[in-house]
Computed example of a mutant assay.
Amino acid sequence: MKRQSPTRSNSSGYTGAYGALRNKCNRWLAAIAVSILAVFPAMAEETVILALGDSLTQGFGLPEEEGFVPQMQAWLRNEGAEVRIINGGVSGDTSAGGLARTAWSLTPEVEAVIVNLGANDMLRGVDPADTRANIDGILTTIDEKGLPVLITTVPSAGNFGAYYKKSFDAVFPELAEQYGALLYPNFFAALGGENLSDARQWMQGDGIHPNAEGVGKIVEAMGPAVLDLIDLAAD
């Protein structure tokens, strides 16, 4: 019996069952390629932010998912931002502690920084000149990396007198202007500013740290400033 050669089409290769299978495989591979191309640009566009701070950043007294960093990251993503925030908050940290760890915290993946330090300096009565020198050192290190920065802190409560308050409160806006940094002047602005005694429903029992609902209000108020930071990182 004479053996028949497989029939070929003129344009798309083999016909019959083999051709259908090959076409199906090609479509499958094409779909995978499209999926890969869709995923990798999104990964490349992700902005990595270091949140360098104290217990307010770290999320003291709260479940991990209810702290400042997870709530801010969720808020930003809900606004359409591709972002990942590194929690660089250390409870009890002063501006001196923040300065000591700034250089090694700025890993190559970091593209922008939130600096939230100074609250513990104020509570301990640290000389505002020392706080200024430490924040200046932090901003210098960040500036050498060419990274945009958002500065925030809490105003002095006035426990150490009017001169201390004036000197302390001047540190952050003046340094923000000097370094061309974004400024969110009061971390607690959404809870009533300096008079936190009227914000007890949004504070933990210590009267110092916000509860989960309080963090949510802070995040909603500060979020637009962080979106501006992300825009600067993309430039």
Rank of each mutant, 00 (worst) to 15 (best):
V83D: 03
G67Y: 05
G193P: 05
L37F: 13
I85R: 10
D121I: 08
Q178W: 00
L232Y: 01
I85C: 06
N195H: 12
G19R: 09
A74R: 13
P224C: 06
A233E: 04
L62E: 11
A112Y: 10
E79R: 13
P70E: 01
I36P: 01
V110Y: 02
E144V: 02
R132E: 14
I86E: 10
G161F: 07
A189D: 13
E174G: 09
A234V: 00
L139R: 01
L182S: 07
T140F: 00
E64Q: 14
A30D: 06
R101C: 09
M43T: 01
A30L: 14
W104G: 00
K166Y: 01
I86L: 15
L175N: 06
A31K: 10
R124S: 13
Q4W: 08
R132I: 05
P173C: 11
L150T: 05
F168E: 02
H209T: 08
A51I: 10
A96D: 09
V226R: 04
Y14L: 15
A119Y: 03
D130M: 07
I230S: 06
V39G: 03
V34F: 11
P224T: 06
A103N: 07
G88Q: 02
T15H: 04
A30R: 11
D228Q: 15
Q71P: 10
N211H: 10
A129S: 14
G67H: 07
G161N: 02
V69K: 07
N10Q: 12
E79A: 15
I135R: 00
L147F: 01
G137A: 11
V83R: 02
G97L: 11
I85K: 09
R132H: 14
